[in-house]
Write a protein that binds this DNA or RNA. Structure first.
Lengths: 325, 325
DNA sequence: GCGCGCCTTGCAAACGATTGCAGAGCTGCT
DNA sequence: AGCAGCTCTGCAATCGTTTGCAAGGCGCGC
């Protein structure tokens, strides 16, 4: 049932109906009441699509995770899911809906399509993956875009993220403090955030060599990689995993190989997902403060939507010492 | 940049541009190529809103969780989040976007607004909460609506869900088999799925009395409720929690009270969320098969969108025995 | 009695796409 | 030459709102 139908029934124009329903002051109290009552009675609900088209605003925010590197990584990834959960709560509280969008960057148009589709008022991206240049290009012409990820010097697009270099450094320092000497970085060093974690790790390791075990971030792939590595020769005595999920796969592979954690091998993860506190042994990890981070993302985005200025921000990572290292 | 602009540049009508971009056979190869090239060069991307309005289809599915009972329950709830993850993967694979929608049922219009907004081609609901009647009413006039929840005799709306009565029964049987006598059901018995779990539990308990500790499903509330109950008098020797999250809160309260699980009190949860395997002790629980469940939801919904018939379905629950009971 | 201003309401133009129908131009056949 | 038939393109309506502008009706003051 559309406004025009109601207008016909009420014997007025659709213009009047529209104004009555939106409480426009220029329509008389009596007509307003009459139309309101009629609308309730017949269950009239304006088509949002038409409304959005006319108003050029939608009340929706797009949320996407570019899966450039890890095609196999799914939305079921715990880190993404909890980020999503926090963001969803915050946005819903502010009256926005969330468009969870399809992103498989087969070409460099995906982000253009998203921002130009007219379906959303702003875009939130989780991770830059291998799409840094695309994001940079689009951000130059489209303001309401905020990314969870790394911030490089001279970067144009707004990011909120944890200090990955620092986080990597903290991990290395902690492991060295435990007297570990054969350090191994586990994960895909290609995505920017992981690259920074590795860089910070190497930096703080100083003279101590860092072995890199590069693999896809999918749990089975990580598990297989670690198992192969353990079969290949002298085990490391410390593993710094690029994510908690990777760390958990490592834990499993180590246990299966009969190695004790942290006795034989210390393991440290990244993210502090909810699960990390419950693995056995409980995972020592570098926490990303998602409560603060997601709040900043939403605030920054809303500021940009309102046409105000905003800046990137970095939330400090924190070492959470549990039992695995 | 809209089609009309491109049309002006190319010296043709917007009609031709539209047809060229959509590969309509009635526009000549040469014009098609020329317009395509021009479009690429100037980054023309059709406004989806206008397109959807005209076509009366959107390529998006709404996903919502009515929070009638548990106002405090957030989207960060692990069960909802993993359901969301599975659904998102499935829908995205089929080319649909997901509109994660604001649902706070302050009145009984929320679902009408969602289906009449024109923004989605179909609606997926997680849980019926206290909105059973509303859902029933809307389903009578709106076909593409599928709900995760309970199925009652004579129900009109399509549901996919696990057999909660059976699940409750399995829990009771297992606990009685362990020789437990003082059974306690923990959770809010109001939402239909929880009510059924309790009913099945009671039924299978037979002559053995079942105490009900009713509380909000928010973790802190559950924890407080269990603590108060333990302080109040003789502890139960078995707890059946309405969800894994509630079970985990119970675990914490029991440990704090110096009780051993499962020595003093056996604990059994519901859902088998990822976390359940990693609590200490690992949680015995009733698994809901989400892989099958979500696949059925999506298939059923797509069938309804296509105008075909479809029926409700029930996936069997399964007892996962770990260490807590 | 007339004109001014106020209160309501309606007309019609947006918003930006898609598509049925008609017509323009061309070829080819008789 | 004339006409049928085919290929391509454009006109204009349509989807369902919102809103600037203008106008109708009415009261009131002079």
């Amino acid at each position: 049932m559309k406004l025009a139908d109601l207008a016909a029934m009420a014997g007025v124009s659709t213009a009047t109906v529209s104004r009555a329903l939106s409480g426009h002051p220029s329509v008389s109290k009596t007509t307003q009441e009459r139309i309101r009552a009629l609308a309730r009675e017949h269950g009239v609900r304006p088509n949002q699509l038409a409304r959005n088209l006319r108003l050029r605003s939608t009340g929706a925010i797009a949320l996407a995770m570019p899966l450039g590197h890890a095609r196999t990584q799914h939305l079921t990834d715990p880190f993404f899911l909890s980020l999503l959960g926090f963001l969803a709560d915050l946005l819903v509280d502010r009256g926005y809906d969330i468009l969870l969008s399809r992103v498989l960057p087969e070409n460099d148009e995906w982000l253009d399509r998203l921002v130009d589709s007219g379906r959303v008022d702003g875009v939130l991206l989780v991770g830059q993956s291998d799409q840094y240049d695309t994001i940079e290009r689009v951000a130059a012409r489209y303001a309401p875009l905020v990314v969870w990820g790394v911030n490089r010097p001279g970067q144009r697009h707004l990011t909120i993220g944890s200090d990955n270099i620092r986080g990597g450094g903290i991990a290395a320092t902690h492991l060295l403090g435990l007297g570990r000497q054969r350090l191994l970085f586990l994960g895909d060093p290609a995505p920017p955030e992981f690259a920074e974690r590795l860089a910070g790790f190497r930096d703080a390791a100083g003279a101590t060599a860092v072995e890199v075990l590069s693999c896809e971030m999918d749990p089975d792939a990580v598990h297989a990689a670690v198992r192969a590595r353990l079969a290949a020769g002298t085990a490391p005595d410390a593993i710094f995993a690029a994510s908690d999920v990777a760390a958990m796969s490592a834990l499993r592979a180590l246990t299966e190989a009969g190695l004790d954690v942290p006795g034989d091998v210390a393991v440290i993860g990244y993210d502090d997902v909810t699960l990390a506190a419950h693995t056995s042994p409980p995972l020592t990890t570098i926490r990303q403060d998602l409560v603060t981070g997601t709040r900043l993302m939403v605030e920054t985005l809303l500021r940009r939507i309102a046409g105000e200025t905003a800046t990137s921000a970095i939330v400090p990572p924190e070492l959470i010492v549990r039992a695995s290292a």
